[in-house]
């Protein structure tokens, strides 16, 4: 089944083996009040150009881990090095600057309702430009409008530029969210179950597009997925969490689907 799917995939060459480390987590721990050990001593790394799949059951700490990498959630202990930044020691200004280099695509898309698709994509440039007009497409400078249209063309939805974000289907919304992340010109991309709310066909299309775009732009990718086929198909490295602990960490081709199933037992 997987080999059949792989044969229909776009050519993805991530040049693994030549690259430097871009993400390095060392002994990350996180607990919440009433919920101990959401993350327990988690350590792994990703090289430039890698596509890393992060899998695990519900409540295993996957989303918390992604948020810790961007310090949307503060880890209790441990260190995170991402794009040569010591993430845990960044001050507010440094953190904002760092975040502009990392794209994050959410499961729920998180587009701003009532605004146009073009405005939503332009929002991707809010962090990297100091232009005050980036909050709406009508006030954005011309070069940002053009960049946003390019990003929309990359995800195949330039014809929806004037549509309202809340009028889109789930698949379209996720493509727009990817276009917004591309507009950031990120050096590292994260995705938190990006296709969980989509049907299998659309989910696969969106995943293929996502992986193809990050590959073409040589952006390192770390994505959370509950779909084991997606985890095996679109990654060269695989990390699995179980109850906050790292259970698998290695090259994707060294794991079988049954290895991954055991994580959910």
């Amino acid at each position: 089944m997987i080999s059949q799917l792989q044969s229909s995939l776009p050519v993805i060459d991530r040049g693994v083996g030549l690259a430097t480390i871009q993400l390095e987590l060392n002994s990350i721990n996180k607990s919440f009040p009433g919920r101990e050990n959401i993350l327990k001593d988690v350590s792994f790394s990703a090289n430039e150009g890698d596509s890393v799949a992060l899998i695990g059951g519900n409540g295993s700490g996957k989303s918390t881990l992604l948020r810790c990498c961007l310090r949307l959630i503060e880890p209790d202990s441990g260190s995170i090095s991402l794009l040569d930044h010591d993430v845990c020691s960044l001050d507010t200004q440094g953190l904002r600057k760092f975040r502009t280099k990392v794209g994050l695509v959410f499961q729920r898309h998180n587009l701003v309702p009532r605004l146009s698709v073009l405005s939503n994509v332009i929002h991707g440039a809010i962090g990297r430009t100091s232009h005050i007009g980036t909050w709406r497409q009508c006030t954005a400078p011309g070069y940002l409008r053009e960049e946003a249209m390019q990003c929309l063309e990359k995800v195949g939805l330039a014809h929806l530029a004037a549509s309202k974000a809340d009028s889109l289907s789930g698949g379209e919304s996720q493509r727009i969210a990817i276009a917004r992340a591309l507009m950031q010109k990120p050096e590292f991309m994260m995705a938190d179950e990006p296709v969980a709310s989509l049907d299998p066909k659309v989910g696969r299309e969106v995943m293929e597009l996502f992986v193809e775009l990050t590959t073409n732009e040589n952006i390192t990718l770390l994505y959370v997925s509950h779909d084991l086929d997606h985890a095996l198909l679109y990654s060269n490295k695989l990390v699995a969490l179980q109850k906050g602990q790292l259970m698998l960490n290695g090259e994707t081709h060294s794991f079988t689907k049954s290895d991954l199933y055991e994580i959910y037992q």
Binding site: R96, L104, F106, G127
Partner: peptide, 13 residues
């Protein structure tokens, strides 16, 4: 819904 806010926060806004 605070999702879009979080999305822009991660962009560095």
């Amino acid at each position: 819904d605070h999702g879009p806010e979080e999305a822009l926060q991660t962009i560095g806004a």
